[in-house]
Structure formats: C-alpha cells, structure tokens
Amino acid sequence: MRSALRLSMRSAAPGVRVLEVAGQADFETGSLLRAGLVQALAELPEPDALVADCSGLEFCSAACLNELLRARKAAMLRGIAFRLTGVGRQMALVLRLTETDTVFDVGPAREPCTPPARATRWYGTASGPRGPTVPGCPSGETTSVPS
C-alpha cells in the first residue's frame, strides 16, 4: 500500500524552522510538498534557516527533488539557510546521481544548529556552490550523505 505524503512544521532552535517530510514524495504529491515548503518559508516570523527533515521520507522522486531545489533557491534569494537532514539511502542515491549532493547542505538526522543573528545572515555573495549553510555546524557534517 502506498504511503501518502505527510508534512509537519515545527520550530527548533530560535530562528530555525523544521519541515518534517514523511511518506512518498513523487509527481502526485509534489504540489503538497511545494505548498508546505512555501508556507515554511513565508510564515512569520521569517526564519533564519529552514531545515527539511527527510528522515521519514520513504521515496523521493525527481519531482520531489525539483521542489526541494525550488525551495532552496527561494530561501537563498531571501537570505535564509536551507538544509536537508535525515537523508536516507534512496534519496541519497537520487542526490548523488543528479549531482545535487554538491548543491544541498546535507546534515545528519538530529536537531539543527542555531543560526546567527539576522544582521549576519547570508545574502548570496560569498558562500560557494552550496549556498548558505546553517552556521555553527561543523563543515564535515554538511557533506555527509549515506551510501
């Protein structure tokens, strides 16, 4: 039996919003994922960082990846750090095959790090290919994707 996409939003550390993504993220559920990501970025107060917790995600299709890329771009344009956590084997394979594992800030499945004060937010001028990262996290964590 197919598992529907389930989204849940919560606050973590001050300034960090977490969108928990669970179930199947594919073409049929892409619009729901898009709506959840848009809401997570738009809800006030605006976060300093948005973390997409994918630890409950059973399947990630190209449509899911497209929505995550779209959300990452929207976050970057607004100076909001965007991070994926809890990436499982199937999603890690999709990221690796599409070479987007070099684009996303990917961290372990745990509570995200605390972002800096708003005055020191990243605004798209000097972060390299990954875009803004969640400050305070060791850099080694941002590249770990399960094999």
Rank of each mutant, 00 (worst) to 15 (best):
S3I: 01
R78I: 01
R118M: 05
G136L: 08
A75G: 12
P116N: 13
L68R: 08
T120N: 14
Q39T: 01
R17L: 00
G140R: 08
S31T: 11
S139I: 01
G36T: 00
S147K: 15
P115W: 00
P14N: 03
G140E: 10
A62N: 15
G140D: 07
R130P: 01
S8C: 08
A62S: 15
A22D: 08
D53H: 06
E43Y: 04
R130N: 12
T120S: 15
R78M: 06
V145H: 02
V18C: 04
F59S: 09
M76D: 14
W122Q: 02
L97I: 15
A63M: 09
G15K: 01
G124K: 12
N66F: 02
L50M: 10
A81T: 04
Q39P: 00
G140S: 07
Q90A: 05
E67M: 07
L65S: 12
L41P: 11
A81Q: 08
A126L: 10
E20H: 07
P108I: 00
L65H: 13
R34N: 05
A71N: 12
C60I: 09
L32P: 11
R96N: 15
A4Q: 08
S61P: 01
R130Y: 07
E58C: 06
G30T: 06
E28R: 12
A12L: 06
P14S: 03
T100H: 08
T143V: 13
E141P: 09
F82G: 06
P132D: 14
D105R: 01
R6P: 02
C60M: 12
A4K: 07
L32H: 14
F27A: 14
G140W: 05
V103N: 06
T125A: 14
T114M: 14
G30L: 06
V18L: 02
R89W: 01
L7E: 09
S31L: 09
G30W: 04
A13L: 10
S8A: 13
P45S: 10
R110N: 04
P138E: 07
D48Q: 15
P116S: 13
E58D: 14
A81G: 11
A126R: 15
M76L: 09
A62L: 15
R118H: 09
A63S: 15
R6T: 05
E111I: 04
P132R: 13
A75M: 08
L93Y: 12
E58W: 07
T120V: 06
M76Q: 14
T100W: 02
R130W: 08
D101W: 07
E111D: 11
C113G: 15
S61N: 15
R2N: 06
A22L: 00
L33Q: 10
T143C: 13
T143L: 12
G136M: 08
R34W: 00
R130A: 12
A75V: 05
P14D: 02
C137H: 04
P108F: 00
C137A: 12
R10C: 11
